[in-house]
Design a protein around this nucleic acid. Structure first.
Lengths: 345, 345
DNA sequence: AGTGTCGCCAAAAACGTTTACGAAGCCCTA
DNA sequence: TAGGGCTTCGTAAACGTTTTTGGCGACACT
C-alpha cells in the first residue's frame, strides 16, 4: 500500500478526506486536517505528480524551449543559461517546476513543440529565438497553452512577449558614433532566420536615416553569433576597399573574435575601428581596450519572463497586471574605450 | 474524445492494440501497426505523459538539483548552468526530459529532495554541491532512485560520482609554484560546508608536504565563491604581517575580485603575488596579466554526468559500462603570466 | 414536530495510458 | 475430426490522485 491510500489507512479515514485536507478544501474539520497534515509530514508524504496531473489535467511545470546545436563552439547558449538562473528563482516562489526543452537543430521547432504539447508535459511554455513568422505561436494559441515569447515576431503580436530594446540601442549607438565623427557605420547581425536580425537591421537603418546617413548594403554583415563569427566579421571588414570606421555588434561573443582578428592584423580596437557591442554575460568584461557596450542582466530577464508568463496563466493571472505583456527590455550603456573618435586616414 | 481513445475510434480498433502498436510490442500485425503509426503522425498524437507515467511508474525525466541563493551577486550558478548545456544535449539523444530542481538556500536540501522523490517527479537525479556527510545519498539509496553525485562526500562512496581532480590540480599547482621559488603558498577555499573545500585543502596540504613544506594555518583562507569573495581574499592577504607569495584559488570568480583588490593596492598580480586559478567559463579569459589556471569544459562535464547517470538506470545500463562511475575529472593547465617567479622583498 | 441548513465525511467516478489475460481465427498434424 | 500452436486483437484492470455526489447527524428555525 502506497501513497495517499496508506496515509488514509494509517489515519483510518477515507482517502477523499485526506486529499481534501491536504489541498486546503473547506469541508473538512480543522482537527482532522491537523491530524492529516501531521501524519503527512511524519511519513514524508507528497502526492504523486503523475496521479495528480492526470486527474487535474495540469502538470505544475512550465517549459523553456531552447535550441541546442551540437557544435562544440560556444554559442549563444550562454544567453539562455543565464535566463534559466532567473527563471528558477522566480518559479520557485510558486512551486512550479522548470523543464528544459532542448530542440535539436535537426528537428523542426514546430514539430518538436507539437509533441511536447500533445504529451501535455507542461502547463505553459517560454519560446525563444522567435522567427519572423513563427508557426509555434499559432500552435500554442490553437492548443490554448499559455506562453510568452522571448523575441518579437514579424506579425501582429497579440500574445505576450519580451524583447530587447533593439531600437533604443540602435539609436543610442548610432547617435554616439555620429557624435564622434563616424559616418561609415557597419552592423553585424546573425546569419540565421531569427527575427532579431531583421529588427536590429531595420532599427539601425532607421537610426542612420535620422542623422541623414544611408547605409552601404555591404555594411550589413551577417555572421554567426559566436566568437568565430566575430572573427569572420573582421575578415569581411578588412577585405573591404572602403572600410567602415565603426561597427555595431549584436552579440557579445562577436566582440571577442573581432578583437582577435584586429589584433592579428596589427590594428587596435577603438583606434583603427570603433566597436560597440552587447554584453549579456561577463565574457567581454576584461577586453582591452574596454568594450563600449549595452549591458543587461540575464537573471532579471528571466524573472521578467516568469512574471509575464504567469500573467497569462489563468491560475496566476490575478497576481499580475492584466493583458499580455509586451515589453521592450531596456539596456544600459557601459562606456568603454572601444568606440573612439574617427581618425583621418 | 481525446488521446488514444480518439485515435482508436478513428481507426476502428481497440485502444489496447493502438498502444501496443505505438510501443513496438510484437503481437500486432505489421499492417495494422503501419496504419496506427500513420494516423498518429497525421493527427499529431503523442501519449499523455501523466497517464503514461502513472501506469508505467516511470516519468521519462531526470532531475538536476542545484542550490540557488537569491542574492544578486553572481555566484557559482554559472558552473551549474554550464553543466546544463551538456546535460540537455546528452539526454536529448535518449528522449529524456530534464527538470531543473532549484533548492532555495532557506530549505534543507534533504527535505527538498525528499519531496521530489515522494512526488515521483523524476526517474533519476543528479545532486551537486555534496557535503561531507550528505543525507541525500542515504535518502536516494533507500528510495532506490538512481543518482549520480557531482562531488565526492566524506564517506565510503559506493554510489556513482564525478568530481574534479583536486588532488591532481593541487599537486601540479604546488609543484609549479615551488619550482618558481615560492615557499609561502596560500589557498582559498569556500566558506560553506561543501565537501569540495575539505578535499582541496587536504590535497593542498599533502602537495606541500611532498615538497617538504608545511602550511601556515592562516594561509588557508575561507571566502565566498564569488568575485566579492576574491576581493576579501585580497583583504586578508594584505592584512597579514608575513604575506604569502602565492595563492591558489578554487573558483574562477575569485580571481577577478582578487585582481581588483590588488590593483587598488597598487600591486600587480603575478609580480607582487603569484596567482593560480580555476577556469570554468570564459569569465577570466581576458584578465591582464593572463591568469594561469586549470581549465575544464562544463559542457563535457555535463555529458559525463549524463552518461554516468544513465549507467545507473536499469533501462539504460546495458548501453554503458557496468558499475557505478567514480571519476576524477581532469583539468588542463593554461599557462598565463599570473604565477611569476618569487621576488626578493 | 416538521423542515431546512450546515458541517463533515465516505464512496465512487474519472483522468489517459499500459499490460495481463484470454479469445478468436487459422494452419498444421496426429 | 480433434487438438495444439501461432498470430492477432479486444477486454478490463490497474496506476494515484481529485472532485462530485450524496448521506448522516446536529442544530436552528418555524
Amino acid at each position: 500500500m502506497k501513497g495517499i491510500k496508506r496515509l488514509a489507512q494509517h489515519l483510518d479515514i477515507s482517502i477523499g478526506t485526506v486529499s481534501r485536507a491536504l489541498n486546503g478544501k473547506p469541508d473538512v474539520n480543522e482537527e482532522t486536517r491537523k491530524r492529516v497534515l501531521d501524519a503527512a509530514a511524519k511519513l514524508g508524504y507528497a502526492p504523486n505528480q503523475a496521479g495528480r496531473s492526470l486527474r487535474r489535467g495540469t502538470t505544475n511545470a512550465i517549459g523553456f524551449m531552447i535550441e541546442t546545436n551540437e557544435e562544440t563552439e560556444a554559442n549563444s547558449d550562454n544567453f539562455f543559461l543565464g535566463v534559466i538562473a532567473g527563471l528558477t528563482g522566480a518559479l520557485l516562489r510558486h512551486n512550479l517546476d522548470l523543464v528544459v526543452l532542448p530542440c535539436s537543430v535537426n528537428e523542426d521547432p514546430h514539430d518538436y513543440l507539437q509533441r511536447i504539447v500533445a504529451r501535455r508535459l507542461v502547463d505553459a511554455v517560454i519560446i525563444s529565438a522567435t522567427q519572423r513568422e513563427d508557426r509555434r505561436i499559432d500552435l500554442l494559441k490553437a492548443a490554448h497553452v499559455p506562453f510568452i515569447a522571448l523575441g518579437r515576431t514579424g506579425g501582429p503580436d497579440e500574445h505576450a512577449w519580451i524583447d530587447l530594446d533593439f531600437e533604443g540601442v540602435a539609436h543610442e549607438a548610432v547617435a554616439r558614433l555620429v557624435a564622434r565623427g563616424h559616418k561609415q557605420i557597419a552592423v553585424a547581425i546573425p546569419d540565421t532566420d531569427i527575427n532579431l536580425g531583421y529588427v536590429f537591421r531595420d532599427a539601425f537603418i532607421d537610426a542612420l536615416a535620422r542623422h541623414g546617413l544611408t547605409v552601404d548594403p555591404s555594411f550589413i554583415i551577417r555572421a554567426r553569433s559566436s566568437e568565430h563569427g566575430g572573427y569572420t566579421i573582421g575578415n569581411a571588414i578588412l577585405a573591404m576597399e572602403d572600410r567602415p570606421t565603426a561597427v555595431v555588434l549584436v552579440y557579445e561573443m562577436m566582440a571577442i573574435g573581432l578583437y582577435r582578428r584586429l589584433n592579428e592584423a596589427g590594428l587596435t580596437p577603438g583606434q583603427d575601428l570603433a566597436i560597440v557591442g552587447f554584453r549579456e554575460g561577463p565574457q567581454s568584461q576584461f577586453l582591452s581596450p574596454a568594450l563600449t557596450c549595452f549591458r543587461m542582466s540575464l537573471r532579471d530577464l528571466g524573472i521578467g519572463l516568469a512574471e509575464g508568463l504567469l500573467a497569462t496563466m489563468p491560475d496566476y493571472a490575478d497576481l499580475y497586471p492584466a493583458g499580455p505583456m509586451h515589453k521592450l527590455w531596456p539596456m544600459e550603456l557601459v562606456e568603454g574605450e572601444s568606440d573612439g573618435m574617427v581618425i583621418d586616414r
